[in-house]
Design a protein around this nucleic acid. Structure first.
Lengths: 155, 155
DNA sequence: ATATCTGCAAAGACTTTGCATGAGA
DNA sequence: TCTCATGCAAAGTCTTTGCAGATAT
């Protein structure tokens, strides 16, 4: 199944228009880049990829688009400790399965892992619920990352 | 119990010297600031606090010291999405109990929470073990953060 | 028609680096 | 004494902003 199927531009389009914003070639190019290039992309990576299809694209537009998509909950933004923000399509429903990151502090490689056991997902859900009740927070998302040294770097 | 007791300068001192580095007034001031001011401090906050005791202090020295302490595993560094790194004493043994963060995406407030149930800690440990085995990673630390909207902001 | 978007360049925020001076061990 | 550390200022990186022209609906 192609990534395009999972993040159908029409669907994104509707969502963007629904918020009174416009669908443009630049935004389309950014969405395509996110679909094709996969997870944990830097703004620069998104830019380089999107610019191949839409050479007129400016980096500032990429930042603005990523910010918009993040606000709309379509994209999640996170850090891995190298001072560059990372972006990827959000998976709010967990439809494709949870995925989190394993970061090598030596070579900066990032591994996506999805080996979640049922209890883990369940525990996470009940933690969110408990935190919500105790602190009056409405929790929208979470970040779980493990840091260490990968095999190649001598882990 | 005062924070100073938990992070005895002598202890830190030994650790720093053990790595062939020197104990200096600037470093002492940074350690004090981390002790007194508590969790999730920005470099700027550490600087302002430490400079009260050691007015000659430069911001660059604070950055260098925080980097050193992070390398030695005494301090942990993390992000909460506002482009400023945050620092706090690490708790590798979990002696003071795990603590993680609840971040309000509206007012940027950070709440430390320690309400960890036994299963949660256990699950985390076994996940680390599993990831270690499967990916050949030697895992040193993890970050868990929840994002949402706090009570005051309308959560 | 008109409010939104865009690219470009400039500005901004945080962090790192170069260098001569100062100071632990 | 001899490295290591410091303060200052300059440079670097990533990100945001201002603005006039272009564009989606």
């Amino acid at each position: 199944m192609s990534p395009h199927k999972e993040h159908n531009p029409n669907c994104c389009c509707r969502r963007i228009r629904g918020h009174g914003r416009r669908m443009t070639p630049a935004r389309h190019a950014v969405l395509d880049a996110l679909s094709e290039r996969g997870e944990h992309l830097t703004a620069e990576e998104v830019f380089r990829s999107a610019a191949r299809r839409y050479p007129n694209l400016g980096l500032a537009t990429v930042y603005r688009t990523l910010e918009l998509l993040t606000e709309l909950g379509m994209v999640s933004r996170f850090d891995t400790g190298d001072d560059k923000a990372r972006y990827e399509f959000a998976d709010p429903t967990g439809a494709k399965g949870h995925h989190h990151h394993l970061v090598c502090t030596s070579c900066r490689k990032i591994i996506d892992y999805k080996d979640f056991i049922k209890e883990e997902t369940e525990l996470l859900r009940s933690t969110e619920e408990g935190l919500s009740r105790k602190y009056g927070f409405k929790i929208n998302s979470h970040v779980i990352q493990f840091y260490g040294v990968c095999r190649e770097c001598g882990g």
